[in-house]
Write a protein that binds this DNA or RNA. Structure first.
Length: 637
DNA sequence: GCAAGGTC
């Protein structure tokens, strides 16, 4: 036995246990350490480059360290603007002390430290935090010589073994990028939060000491909701006109739509229509296309954001409730890790055995069986996103829905299973027929769809695809006089208030928050009473509407004139993300980006500080407007 | 009392 001792550290306990299982061939010893949840697993493993080694595999639970300002930079000790230059300290939070000490202790006799955190930017930084904890226990651990990083994106056996045998070094550029984000978020968040709370409190717009927080993610999120709210409120319907004809054959009718669509000027369709009646009273010719195959695509492999969006739409669950339920299912071992951006299954993944597990279900078991035995299996579509850390969300083992007592968990589990089976199924197939009616120089079209094979829709009950009314059997080139015709008018309809499902997609598309935090940002701005959830009408969807405070804050910021930036819109945060990627790729340094963004926010802070009366007035105005409205009329919603 | 990011 060589005397190489390898300390492996994963980002969370479940990964440590599973990797230990693979590398030890199932025979590892579990030893309690200083932390209740983060066990230490011991075994031997032949790493190739170091030969047989004694291994201790343990874990952290996310970040180990937190950055903060020194205590003499507290709330009432300095003006908030000084936080842009204040020194920053690193602390081990109380609830992480045990984990930190466990790493320190276990590192004492290690010759090699191997990092097994998720392969994403934050994982790289957590790796660096682990290195610092380990070095405190054992100064011989050096980043250049004795720290290695394994690369893995899922826990399939060969993949894990390959990761163990081919480690690389920690990516310090990714570490820099995260350090940069942390520092900017801290300086900006805390300085603006203190400034806003103090200003609105002391001017009595709000109860003094009320917390008015600003965050680089909170405010763009609020901005989306306010923006939509204003568009609904300022919406003016517009009238439009269109021509519609109905053809009849063998007692079957079909509506044909004008290819020019809706016209916002009444004169034009009136002229066209009277021209048709005057010059082509005999009608026009119908052309019928051959039936063309069409399909409705099965869903992509499941990401966190889509899970949250769909559970919001199908079960009216909040993003937070969905993530909580998925987290519990994951901890119970029923579901795979619920936070992922990946919508493509790795090639090596054994989808068949995952489907096999579901054949036990009395509800969808027979469908799963058909997929396996009747050759109905079809490889899942590949999406474009891969976070290199986790595969798409999917069921790990079968659990009867009676065992899941919590209805949220039941819904989420069933949804994930059906989605998974659907993604392993064929697309739904149908036939589309198109008919064109040429009346004078105008064209009208009608479409008919016939569903032939439901395929994935048999198990994915959340979507529907039904055959439309069939078109009559017109002869090609047949001359027909419209059975009914006329000019119709309509009105454009207003946009709807923001639903949580839409907000999640907007945040995701704009790089506001991550799969793990989007739900938290939404609950945070609800907690802060910037927005609230309301129902539209009876039985209508639940929507997010801004409070007077939320409106006032966004209006206030929008009325200050910053040079070229906005504190209420997503662009700055997105720009930061772009710059962080540049740190990772090496085209900018951490210092470049820090200087650029701290300068920018500092200038915005100075502007805000000098124009605080605008913000106070804006909030006061929104407050007084709602209170007078509420006392004289019924509330708007 | 304060951010956003991990995760239990």
């Amino acid at each position: 036995m060589s005397n190489v001792r390898v300390l492996c550290v994963a980002e969370k306990p479940t990964i440590a246990r599973q990797v230990s299982g693979v590398l030890s061939g199932g025979s590892f010893r579990t030893r309690n350490g200083k932390s209740k949840y983060n066990k230490n697993f011991e075994f031997t493993y032949n790493f190739g480059q170091w030969g047989y080694a004694q291994v201790v595999m343990t874990s952290v639970s996310g970040h180990l360290l937190l950055i903060d300002f020194p205590s003499n930079y507290g709330w009432d000790k300095v003006t908030p603007g000084r936080l842009f230059e204040a020194p920053i300290t690193e602390v081990v939070p109380n609830d992480k002390k045990d984990i930190y000490n466990n790493i320190k202790q276990e590192a004492r006799f290690a010759t090699i430290l191997m990092i097994w955190t998720d392969c994403d930017r934050e994982g790289e930084y957590i790796g660096w935090e682990i290195v610092k904890a380990a070095q405190e226990g054992n100064p011989r651990i050096q980043i250049e010589t004795s720290v290695f990083r394994s690369q893995f994106s899922h826990l399939e056996r060969n993949h894990v073994i390959h990761a163990a045998n081919n480690p690389i070094s920690l990516n310090m550029k990714a570490v820099d990028a995260v350090a940069c984000r942390q520092e900017i978020d801290l300086r900006v968040g805390l300085s603006f939060t203190r400034l806003l709370s103090r200003s609105l409190g002391s001017s009595r717009v709000i109860e003094p000491k009320t917390l008015i927080s600003y965050g680089t993610c909170q405010f763009p999120t609020l901005g989306f909701i306010v923006d939509r709210y204003k568009r609904v409120k300022s919406f003016v319907p517009e009238q439009f006109w269109y021509i519609k004809v109905t053809l009849k054959k063998n007692d079957q009718m079909a509506d044909f739509h004008w290819t020019r669509g809706n016209i916002f000027d009444r004169l034009f369709p009136t002229l066209v229509y009277s021209d048709l009646l005057a010059r082509f009273p005999q009608g026009g010719k119908v052309q019928m296309s051959h039936p063309r195959p069409t399909s409705k695509w099965k869903p992509l492999p499941l990401t966190t954001v889509i899970l949250q969006k769909d559970c919001s739409v199908y079960f009216k669950m909040s993003a937070k409730a969905t993530l909580d339920a998925a987290e519990k299912l994951y901890q119970s071992g029923w579901l795979l890790y619920p936070r992922t951006e990946t919508d493509v299954f790795p090639d090596a993944m054994d989808l068949h055995s995952l489907i096999q597990n579901q054949t036990q279900s009395p509800i969808w078991g027979s469908y799963a069986l058909e997929l396996l035995n009747d050759g109905k299996f079809d490889r899942p579509r590949a999406g474009k996103n891969n976070d290199q850390a986790h595969p798409p969300i999917h069921p790990v083992v079968f659990v009867s829905t009676d065992v899941l007592r919590d209805s949220n968990q039941r819904n989420v589990y069933e949804y994930v299973v059906r989605r998974f089976l659907a993604s392993c199924s064929r697309d739904a197939k149908g036939e589309q027929t198109k008919a064109t009616f040429e009346w004078g120089h105008e064209k009208f079209v009608a479409e008919g769809v016939m569903v032939k094979e439901l395929n994935y829709l048999e198990v994915y009950k959340y979507q529907k695809w039904e055959s439309s009314k069939q078109l009559p059997q017109f002869e090609n080139g047949e001359l027909i006089k419209p059975f009914k015709h006329g000019i119709f008018e309509g009105k454009t309809s207003p946009p709807q208030y923001m639903t949580e499902a839409e907000l999640i997609l907007l945040m995701d598309a704009n790089g506001i928050g991550t799969d793990a935090t989007i739900a938290e940002h939404i609950t945070k701005i609800i907690d802060r009473q910037y927005v609230s959830k309301t129902k539209v009408g009876r039985g209508g969807p639940e929507v997010l509407v801004p409070s007077w405070l939320g409106m006032g804050l966004i209006d206030g910021f929008d009325s200050m004139e910053f040079d070229d930036i906005s504190l209420s819109k997503p662009f700055l945060r997105k720009d930061l993300e772009v710059n962080l990627s540049m740190i990772v790729s090496g085209s900018k340094t951490k210092q470049d980006v820090l200087t650029e963004f701290v300068t920018l926010y500092k200038r915005a802070y100075a502007t805000t500080n000098s124009k605080l009366p605008l913000l106070n007035d804006s909030c006061r105005r929104c407050r007084d407007l709602t209170t007078t409205q509420a006392s004289t009329t019924t509330p708007a919603m």
